[in-house]
Design a protein around this nucleic acid. Structure first.
Lengths: 131, 131
DNA sequence: GTGACAGTTTACGTTCGCGTCAAGTTAACG
DNA sequence: CGTTAACTTGACGCGAACGTAAACTGTCAC
């Protein structure tokens, strides 16, 4: 049960990040590893949070935004307070994400059209396109 | 016809950016305003490019990546060289954008599920949710 | 001419998300 | 015992994308 505790090295391997990154996240209060003396021991909760942090980053959220969102995610596990407030924060984020997706869809369609044009031009020049 | 030329101030108002930003983009060769003495005059082409720059930024592309993409967009207008090369660059970008959209879709679904959970918790607590 | 603006260049400052030493500690191995 | 590996805490560095003074020019209204 307590074998879910990981050292920083194990965490780094598991999530493909550097120690610096994990220490940085702790300094920013995104992670809260326990201590065994001076050494960090990452819990199951830390792993769950880190997973979400890395996911959030891919969507272009700042660490600060992610920190706020993490409060929401914690609720499912541990019943924290201020759920209603963080819920509305998440709602705004969700709207932003949807808007971003819509823009992205439009941009993709746009780029596809431009590339079709480019293909025509290349074709008329007798230039073949690599797969 | 030439009334499409704008000063830096007009551009700033139109696109909600600062003069510093436009000068910075020019220094990075993203924009190529004409000069009237020392003053910049932004063309129709600059406005089209700026629009794409701001769009690209929202998708998380770096200014350098955007600069490369702009070459492609120019082609439709002005028939530049190296179309085949920029085409493959665009192809990679397109793939990245699709991947990003897929991740974003997944994240949206994820967040929606979490929020549904949160709603249940709030409901069980008798907390009403604002619209 | 004299503000008042809108614009210019130069250049240093800032935030974010870490990278990269530097120097020290602690645990285990042989 | 020495040393090797994994860890620790600073602290400075860096690229991106601008912000922000500072100091100057040019143009218009009055």
């Amino acid at each position: 049960m307590s074998d879910t505790l990981s050292t920083i090295g194990q965490m780094c391997e598991e999530f493909a990040v550097t120690p610096r990154t994990l220490r940085f996240y702790e300094s920013k209060e995104l992670l809260f590893p326990r201590r065994e003396g001076s050494r960090r021991l990452f819990t199951r909760s830390d792993r769950a949070r880190l997973k979400l942090i890395l996911q959030g980053k891919r969507f272009g959220f700042s660490l600060e935004e992610i920190r706020q969102l993490l409060d929401l995610y914690d609720i499912g596990d541990q019943q924290r307070t201020q759920l209603a407030r963080t819920y509305s924060v998440a709602q705004e984020r969700l709207e932003a994400m949807r808007a971003q997706r819509d823009e992205l869809d439009a941009a993709i369609a746009d780029l596809e059209a431009k590339m079709a044009d480019a293909r025509d031009i290349l074709k008329s020049r007798g230039v073949s396109i690599a797969a």
